[in-house]
Each structure stands twice: as structure tokens, then as C-alpha cells.
């Protein structure tokens, strides 16, 4: 699919908009619809498209595996850390009032935002991991033996 100019152009034009829209979803989780889960899925979808057109190896060059592994664990840790922080501050686990004890109602959106960032990072990283691990080794170009499978030119058949 790499040689198909329409696919290349479609991905190149759509990817930045998808990522920006996902960031909007992430940062406005407590104000409008959406949140960490949706934004993580949208960013992952943008990179899936990139991988579908330019190949998995190229996608892993842009988003390496060590990076997604780090993000998956980091997101969960950020979530748990928010809860543990409120515990150490003398509140209940995940009581977001601990973020700003002088104004519990005003602290709530801040706690929610932190937690949502954790969710978003983990979901993005987990989606990328699923894509990477399932498609690993299925690209004829990646195989050193050079054996190629069935017709893999998506553009030629569609």
C-alpha cells in the first residue's frame, strides 16, 4: 500500500487532525463528551492507519515498543499515584479533594484530569501493543528469508 498515492495522501492529511482531535477530547473530558478512553483509541487509530499504509516496521520506528510499554505502565501508575497521593494527604483513596484541600469542589476537576490522562496513556499504549504483537512477523518485507505470502497489495485488489 506504500506506493498508492491516494492512501499515502489520505493518511498524511488525516493523521494530524485525528491526533489534535484526540487531544481536544482528552483535555475536555470533564467539560464535554469523551475522555481518556476515547482519546486513547483515536490516537491509536491514527497510528494504525499509518502502520496500515506505511508498514508495521515504519510505525514501530515512529512509536517504538519500549515507548508504548512505558506508557502503558505509566498510565496505570499515574492513576494509582493520584489515589495514593490523596491517601498520604489524609483523604480516602482517590478522593480528588486532596489535590486542593482549600476547595474540594474545585479540586475535583484537577483530580479527574490527572486520572483521565492516566487512562488515555494506557489505552493508547495498550492498543498499540495489541496491533504490534498481533501483526508482528506478518510482513514479507520484514522476513529475512524473503518468502512472500499471498497478494498483499491492498490497492491493486480494491
Amino acid at each position: 500500500m506504500k506506493e498508492n498515492p491516494i492512501m499515502r495522501l489520505a493518511v498524511r492529511w488525516n493523521l494530524p487532525f485525528m491526533v489534535v482531535f484526540a487531544l481536544y477530547t482528552q483535555t475536555h473530558g470533564e467539560l464535554g463528551p469523551g475522555g481518556g478512553f476515547q482519546s486513547g483509541v483515536i490516537v491509536a487509530a491514527a497510528f494504525f492507519l499509518y502502520g496500515l499504509v506505511f508498514g508495521g516496521a515504519e510505525m514501530r520506528r515512529v512509536v517504538p515498543r519500549w515507548f508504548t510499554d512505558l506508557l502503558a505502565a505509566g498510565g496505570v501508575l499515574l492513576y494509582v499515584g493520584t489515589g495514593l497521593y490523596s491517601m498520604f494527604m489524609g483523604y480516602e483513596f482517590l478522593d480528588h479533594a486532596a489535590v486542593m484541600p482549600s476547595n474540594p469542589g474545585g479540586a475535583e476537576p484537577w483530580g479527574m484530569t490527572l486520572v483521565e490522562y492516566g487512562v488515555g496513556l494506557t489505552v493508547f499504549a495498550v492498543m498499540m501493543t495489541i496491533f504490534n504483537e498481533i501483526t508482528e512477523g506478518t510482513n514479507p518485507e520484514d522476513n529475512q528469508t524473503g518468502e512472500s505470502g499471498a497478494d498483499t497489495e491492498f490497492g491493486a485488489r480494491a
Partner: peptide
């Protein structure tokens, strides 16, 4: 744990 690094997997001859 299950799939990483298993290059000789049965999905040979695919796309990605």
C-alpha cells in the same frame, strides 16, 4: 508475554 519475539508465528505471509 505470549507473542513478543515469536517471529516464526503461523501468520506468515501477511501484510504488516
Amino acid at each position: 508475554v505470549l507473542l513478543r519475539g515469536r517471529r516464526g508465528n503461523p501468520l506468515k505471509g501477511g501484510l504488516l
